[in-house]
Design a protein around this nucleic acid. Structure first.
Length: 499
RNA sequence: GCAAAAGUAGCUCAGCUGGUAGAGCGCGACCUUGCCAAGGUCGAGGUCGCGGGUUCGAACCCCGUCUUUUGCUCCA
């Protein structure tokens, strides 16, 4: 067997759609850009991944608990986090140079020119007018002002401007049925804030002692300017985040520890070391004092899959300020002088992985095309291509397929007995139509690790064959051994033990 | 957002200088079939992305529009 040439993203997208993993959203209406739906097999794989992550966080760590916060949050949350002000700029494009500018910066630049020419009053008037227009959200007015002030693009030196557009990261909607009484709320752009605002609730109700973590899986929404690369960047996506609260000064140790633990997780679910790497952030966000990405080698290159950030006490401090509620923790542990560490706002180490990106990584890695027959020098007609998903058995949508070799002589009845035996423990697939080879192939394409064939010998001695997906090899086992054998192969335990 | 290319059956595609649509695979039924996409018979499935225009007549020519892909830009 020889490995096929590098698979393209196109192959992945096609396979995902053809075999019920990922569909474009609203496809019958021509689709909705950057939104995708998970199909019948995709949802199983994604659920399995989320479940593995959840267990790796909460079950393996007695000081990590989970929550499920609402998507809607009080609007002040996003003031405190910086998402409202920091991520809300009026942008304008010059049609000739194709350059994009911040409209407010263009006007401020002009005002500065006036000031430098000794026309301070004119400068102030311009800034006031800009402030008024932006405050009233009058974007057309801002554009008119730019043209009236004869502000040209420094590259093309023309006034050929597009309209001013507000590039807001967040989606907004209204709470309250009557328009006048309604309040603008946002669909959360990250799940982390739901954890921060519940920090004290969890700490107190769970009697949690620092260090401890809060984990959450949930949808988040971002109004991305362009969306590309399939489910890698979507407007609606799912995050798996854990915020770990630590004593100030210890954050770097925890940061390093979680960074290594998270890498082990990705390896444990089957992603090869060679396709994973750390990418350390040189330029840090305003809230972080250390940050590293775990990148996976997608068909379009190494890209961020998970971020591990040391977020300092930025978020809790912000929430304390905006909510006027103390976010302190009293640390009873004793320092080197024998005194309690006392009150402080904890530091936070965040691990944040995109469920959809993890799905894509696992799917890309599992997607395997092999050709056989070439190496043994036979004529090219004997060349066979085989495509299968080399998913970790614990992640596969179906754990086993039950296939009577023919659909007569009582074999289907016998096979149904085997199905009944297994279906309460594993998700199994029963099929009796078509040739056995075709049925094997169908299971390969969706990543089912085991095919159990029922033949005439089964009727005599209660043995079946198990055919392994990756090797296509078969072994004969007694029906009574089936459950234990499959249970071992598909067990989550074998993954968790590696982390 | 800009530029280029492409949209025909579930998938991959063919369809000549304009004359009202085809193949392979897949799908469904039946027959045959003892292990890696098996053979046979029958069958379902397309207002050719959408909207206009030219023409006696448009999948094909023209205009617009939507979607996708690739490259640039953006990713605050």
């Amino acid at each position: 067997m020889t490995p096929a040439p590098e698979t393209s993203l196109q192959d992945i997208v096609s396979h995902a759609k053809e075999y019920g993993f990922v569909f474009p959203s609203s496809e019958i209406y021509d689709g909705l850009q950057a939104v995708y739906d998970y199909g019948q097999n995709g949802v199983e794989l994604k659920n399995n991944l989320k479940n593995m992550w959840w267990k790796a966080m909460t079950q393996l760590n007695d000081n990590v608990v989970g929550i499920d916060a609402a998507i809607f949050m009080h609007p002040l949350t996003w003031k405190a986090s910086g998402h409202v002000d920091g991520f809300n700029d009026p942008m304008i494009d010059n049609k000739d140079s194709k350059k994009r500018y911040r409209a407010d910066q263009l006007l401020e630049g002009k005002a500065e020119q006036y000031a430098n020419n000794g026309e301070a009053e004119k400068a102030q008037a311009l800034l006031n007018e800009m402030g008024r227009l932006l405050g009233a959200n009058d974007l057309e007015g801002v554009r008119s002002l730019i043209i009236a002030e004869d502000i040209k693009c420094p590259v093309s030196n023309t006034l050929n401007w597009t309209e001013v557009r507000q590039f807001n990261l967040m989606f907004s909607t209204q709470i309250g049925s009557v328009a006048e009484d309604s309040t603008t709320v946002y669909l959360r752009p990250e799940t982390a804030q739901g954890i921060f605002v519940n920090f004290l609730n969890v700490q107190k109700s769970g009697r949690m002692k620092i260090p401890f973590g809060i984990a959450q899986i949930g949808k988040a929404f971002r109004n991305e300017i362009v969306a590309k690369q399939f489910i890698f960047r979507m407007r609606e996506f799912e995050q798996m985040e854990m915020q770990f609260f630590v004593r100030p000064g210890t954050e770097m140790n925890w940061y390093e520890q979680w960074r290594d633990t998270r890498l082990k997780f990705h390896q444990a679910i089957g992603l090869p070391v060679s396709k994973l790497k750390f990418h350390i952030h040189e330029k840090l966000a305003h809230y972080a004092n250390a940050a590293v990405d775990i990148e996976y080698q997608f068909p379009f290159g190494f890209r961020e899959m998970e971020g591990i950030h040391s977020r300092t006490n930025f978020d809790l401090t912000q929430h304390q300020e905006f909510s006027k509620k103390k976010q302190q923790y009293f640390d009873n542990d004793l320092d080197e002088n024998g005194k309690p560490f006392g009150n402080y706002i904890p530091y936070v180490v965040e691990t944040s992985v995109g469920a959809d990106r993890l799905f894509l990584a696992v799917f890309c890695n599992a997607f395997t095309k092999e050709t056989s027959g070439e190496a043994d020098g036979r004529p090219s007609e004997t060349l066979k291509e085989r495509t299968y998903l080399k998913l970790h058995p614990a992640l596969a949508p179906y754990k086993a397929a039950i296939l009577p070799i023919t659909k007569k002589d009582g074999l289907p009845e016998k096979a149904r007995e085997v199905e009944k035996l297994l279906k309460t423990e594993f998700r199994v697939f029963y099929e009796e139509k078509d040739a056995i080879g075709k049925r094997y192939t169908r299971q390969d394409l969706i990543g089912t690790p085991f095919c159990i064939a029922i033949d005439h010998q089964t009727l005599e001695d209660n043995t079946v064959t198990i055919r392994h997906r990756d090797t296509t090899e078969q072994e004969r086992v007694h029906i009574s051994e089936l459950k234990a054998k499959i249970a071992y192969e598909v067990s989550e335990q074998r993954i968790l033990e590696l982390i």
